[in-house]
Design a protein around this nucleic acid. Structure first.
Lengths: 188, 188
DNA sequence: CACCGATCTGAACGGCGTCAAGATGATCTT
DNA sequence: AAGATCATCTTGACGCCGTTCAGATCGGTG
């Protein structure tokens, strides 16, 4: 698994073959099959590590947030920045999810998962009169928006706008600012 | 290319090999190389057709919209529904974009592209005092949100919520309703 | 007719995921 | 200490993949 992460960081997702992992680890191509059922299971394990890392990133952002209003923005920024710092890992994480048509099992119940953290934040910001379904919808909306931005923020088309706004992070905050839920008071 | 689209629809993206396309078309594995430089170029061509189809879908939604306030919602719904009706094609479209780190060339200038359509709609809704950069940011935000939702709307985790809300489309409208820009007056 | 360009074929190369059969070596049992 | 057990690894093979290249086919042009 260390070998897999090394290849992912150095050569990107397209170079991540089971045989390459075995080479990097210094074993024969068949060796991994004694630890994982198939390639997908190895990728699942790598992705799991990624989700943990993302959770820590977001927890850190929550701790850094100045006030309740800025909380969601900070979490969103840290989410996208994680995807920019580990683009290959982020892709593996979502490829695995898409293959199984679901986010990692238990992510919606595990108290300190990234997903629950966002939902709890909404719960806290919204107040008790808001229905649970609405909290869930807001969480999903925020997650989708952050994921979309994570996948597209590296597109070259946005480079002019990025420099016009003064850098990558300003761009991120600008986009998130247009997504209702990421700001207590959003610009008209 | 017809063969490629056929395979995509019937067997999914993972079955879309150059050799399979050649088999489906009834030619030798090397034949496609006289029409496309490599596999990527064939996929680009297929993706291009996909973007055209998506553009038509969204144009149709714009025509159907009852009023200006509902315009963005209708466009967003039709975007996600397109991805649900052609999941394999949608994946190819974005895989190609990601490989080149950009949306299809000219999409930002071509007057009747999907992207320009969204931007022009924002331009119309916003009024002339809003800065161009803000229009661009709103367009990107909407696009990212729609793309994220398109990729995640099929996740099994959301099934309970979907039926609680009364179906797929109600779910989509619910999520989009939480994303500021998709409604003139969004719920508190 | 001879020529040419477009189109296709057949065979080959290396890389891939996967599997079955067997080797090696540590640990546990008696 | 001797033998059994188990996890781990290797070797070698299979079929599929993307790609290349040397040649076959064939319709149209001079």
């Amino acid at each position: 698994m260390d070998a897999a992460r090394r290849i992912l960081e150095n050569e990107g997702p397209s170079a991540l073959s089971l045989r390459a992992v075995a080479r990097e680890a210094g074993v024969s191509p068949a060796a991994p099959y004694h630890h994982f059922k198939d390639k997908g299971e190895l990728l699942d394990a790598v992705a799991h590590v990624g989700w943990d890392m993302l959770g820590e990133s977001m927890t850190g952002a929550r701790a850094r947030a100045a006030n309740l209003g800025a909380l969601m923005t900070e979490i969103g920024v840290s989410y996208v920045q994680f995807s920019q710092q580990h683009p290959a890992l982020y892709r593996v994480m979502y490829d695995c999810s898409r293959d199984k048509d679901m986010l990692p099992e238990g992510m919606q119940d595990n108290e300190d998962s990234a997903y629950c953290m966002v939902r709890d934040t909404f719960r806290k910001v919204a107040g008790p009169e808001v229905k649970d379904d609405d909290i869930e919808l807001a969480t999903i909306a925020a997650w989708c928006a952050a994921h979309g931005l994570a996948e597209m923020s590296s597109f070259k088309q946005f480079d002019p706008l990025k420099s016009a706004l003064g850098g990558e992070e300003a761009f991120l905050r600008g986009v998130l600012g247009h997504l209702g839920m990421f700001q207590a008071s959003r610009p008209a």
